[in-house]
Design a binder for these strands. Structure first.
Lengths: 367, 367
DNA sequence: AGACTCCCCGGAAACGTTTACAGCTATCGG
DNA sequence: CCGATAGCTGTAAACGTTTCCGGGGAGTCT
């Protein structure tokens, strides 16, 4: 008889062969029934029964080898603790799910080798496509992206000539929006708490800040600029350092986590927000609305960027021959209590911080 | 000659056959060289050269089919926007990475069918193992967990008899710690903002709250209990509803997101925290420290639970015959400014909230 | 009644890799 | 000088699935 293969593999799990043998049909018939295509009523019954009896569950790896797809899409981000990526992820999830695929997320933790390793591993067919949002980009990285056997879409800035689908924003302009707003509401000693300058967003924001001040004719004062990393604790520490040597009347922060750290440092130092110091964050995450006072923040359209990236990816999965595309999402400023315009009132020289004068509005005002 | 197969598959990507043909050796030799085992110097040179020329990259799916492992581990959680899962994820990541595997995260968004579908899909060999933290558990769910072809560890409560590795905490006791602390600092009108009662943690916390009040001889008042879901906005809304009909002097919140919502609602309503109302959250996430005033919170040892779950998983991947194990991590209370003891001072009948009297300490006090 | 269509079935190939096995050559020891 | 041994190589099987293809049976139309 045609029993050419082991029916029970070493680990004891049933395969389609097990089911076929038990049902007394060929593996082809068994496979067809299990996939719901074809089969006589009698065959269907026998196969279903056999499958249930042995507890058959198909091996997705083998199926993928055959079908050349896995139904999985991956998202690689720096730090999943940053709410901006959570929002991006939600938007991507929605699009990806609508195509019947599932989204997997990997946090690279800023270790660039980790991200490259992930690309090399996952992209080699474990997933049908990837969205990555690198904050540092090396040449090695870039070639890994270009050589990926699987479609890749990048969220974030990328060298102009890289032939990779790419959704970006203009965070340089985003910083300018924040500075314009602060200047317009009478602030002049504007500080800046940034992330690392060797990251793409860090560099762009530094550039944007300096350009905006210059444009307004405000002299650059390096005492008012401080750098940490893109996290809460670093933002707080950086702000404490800044306050120890300078006296800003406003702070632009490179993201909302930093802004929350800055807010905390300011309140702990007895500064009133926004009366003494206005604070503007960036990314406009849920966190900005969760603070008291609520934080003004520059929206970089993270959800929108995620949504578009996912759409680009799905299109490319469907047709790999598309030319590389580049989309841009404009930033916008959302003004909330933390940078509300206030009459310049003399700040009490000492004593605890006064009560906030503005109540949180349910939504901010988009500039 | 032995050219039995297509060397260039339809999608144009080179396979080991391509490389072997180009190097003029057999696929076995090519594979050996590419894996760094054996090969004469001459063969090694030829294969390396050919691989580089055609840009060969191995197909991980095919490799996995052969090796029966993928080097991937998945974590499935409800809501990746909840910082408690971020902390858990970080702990798991560390352990998993030390075994040379990579961690993938999937957010189920509370859709239980989604979670089951994920199990059915991912667990079918796409990953070497899974850690899941379900908040709702149905029978269907349970059988999917038990039948998983791949090792699964559950973080959270599970039926006592389920033969599944399981790391849990005692959130019932956690709520008791919060209530004890509030009672000890003179609070009597203790409110409770919970998540959905049809979830495992929601039910346990409700139970724990009622039991703790009863133990202290405080009469239960349903006016002081409100339910939303485990998110910030719901926590804020639930607290607003509660404040509209009752006048608590303390709030226990079922997690930190709810607690932040509650804090926001309280401040917006002009209540001072902690003078008028003490607030205690749960999970002791980074968020608790990010607030002003910093939030007291019951730690449920999320990082520790994640670490242990990852260890259990790795052990089970190594040896599937281990008996099911269950571990428990005790809760502990971290007291910070939001529930600091204050002298019972008459609250001004009207007017804006006063300044907080306590400054955030760098760390709380563990009770 | 015969030809044609339709459906079902089983054999076998294919997806791309690793690896057991056997054959070959060259070297070394006796 | 011959047998044993070591190292390399190629053939082929295997992982578990889907799918192409050809054969056969039943039903329908002419």
């Amino acid at each position: 008889m045609g029993r050419k293969r082991l029916q029970e593999p070493a680990d004891g799990r049933p395969t389609v062969h097990t089911v076929a043998a038990r049902a007394g049909v060929s593996i082809a018939s068994a496979s067809r029934v299990l996939n719901g295509v074809g089969g006589s009523p009698e065959t269907i019954r026998k196969v279903r029964e056999a499958a249930a009896e042995v507890g058959y569950v198909p091996n997705a790896i083998a199926r993928s080898l055959q079908s050349q797809r896995t139904g999985l899409v991956a998202l690689a981000v720096e730090d999943i603790g940053n709410p901006v990526y959570v929002e991006m992820m939600r938007a991507i999830e929605a699009v990806v799910a609508s195509s019947g695929r599932q989204l997997l997320v990997h946090a690279t933790g800023g270790r660039i080798d980790n991200e490259t390793a992930l690309l090399r591993r996952l992209a080699n067919r474990y997933v049908d496509g990837m969205i990555v949002s690198p904050i540092r980009v090396t040449d090695d990285h870039l070639t890994a992206l270009v050589d990926s056997p699987v479609p890749v879409v990048v969220v974030g800035q990328l060298g102009a000539d890289a032939p990779i689908d790419n959704v970006r924003t203009d965070s340089r302009h985003g910083v300018a929006l924040a500075v314009d707003h602060l200047v317009a509401t009478g602030r002049r000693r504007i500080g800046f708490v940034n992330g690392p300058l060797d990251t793409v967003p860090g560099a762009a924001r530094d550039d944007g800040f300096r350009a905006a001040l210059t444009r307004h004719g405000i002299p650059l004062d390096d005492e008012l600029i401080e750098v940490g990393d893109f996290q809460y604790a670093a933002g707080r520490a950086a702000t404490e350092r800044l306050l120890a040597r300078a006296d800003p009347d406003a702070l632009v922060c490179a993201n909302d986590l930093i802004a929350v750290g800055a807010l905390h440092a300011l309140l702990a130092a007895g500064r009133r927000v926004p009366q003494d110091v206005a604070v503007v964050g960036m990314d406009d995450t849920e966190l900005a609305r969760m603070m008291f006072p609520q934080l003004s923040s520059v929206s970089l359209g993270s959800a929108e960027r995620g949504r578009r990236a996912a759409e680009l990816l799905l299109q490319r999965i469907a047709d790999a021959t598309l030319p590389p595309r580049r989309e841009q999402v404009p930033p916008s400023l959302v003004v909330r209590a933390s940078s509300a315009a206030t009459l310049p009132a003399p700040r009490p020289a000492t004593g605890p911080a006064g009560p906030p004068t503005t109540h949180p509005s349910s939504e901010g005002v988009t500039a």
